[in-house]
């Protein structure tokens, strides 16, 4: 949690100057199940990446490389939407 400014220091209108600051807020603790990627079955169609609500599917050079577990809320959309022929993402209990 970042320090909240006092009323004298707060910008007028509550403007937030730092873009994308929510990245410092960790939502990974909401998770019960976590997605696990099976590299050998993945066809890198990137459907999981484009449908992930939390921008938590990590892609490098057009290939899925893993998940951002700090922000993944474990909703399971990626595993559900992975094409039936590969099913490269499985949800596991996150201990």
């Amino acid at each position: 949690m970042s320090e909240l400014l006092g009323w004298k220091d707060m910008p007028i209108g509550g403007i937030i100057f730092e873009s994308g600051s929510s990245q410092r807020y960790v939502t990974g603790g909401w998770r019960t199940y976590k997605p696990v990627h099976a590299q050998d079955r993945c066809v890198h169609c990137l459907r999981c990446w484009i449908l992930c609500p939390d921008s938590a599917v990590l892609v490098e050079n057009g290939r899925l490389v893993g998940f951002d577990y700090d922000h993944c809320k474990g909703c399971g959309i990626c595993a559900r939407e992975c094409p039936a022929k590969c099913r490269a993402i499985e949800m596991e209990l996150d201990r």
């Binding site: 929510s22 998770r31 959309i77």
Partner: peptide, 16 residues
Amino acid sequence: LLVGGHRSCAGCAAPA
């Protein structure tokens, strides 16, 4: 351009 860490429900499709 829309980063993680926002507080929508898990499984909400709107951020996508």
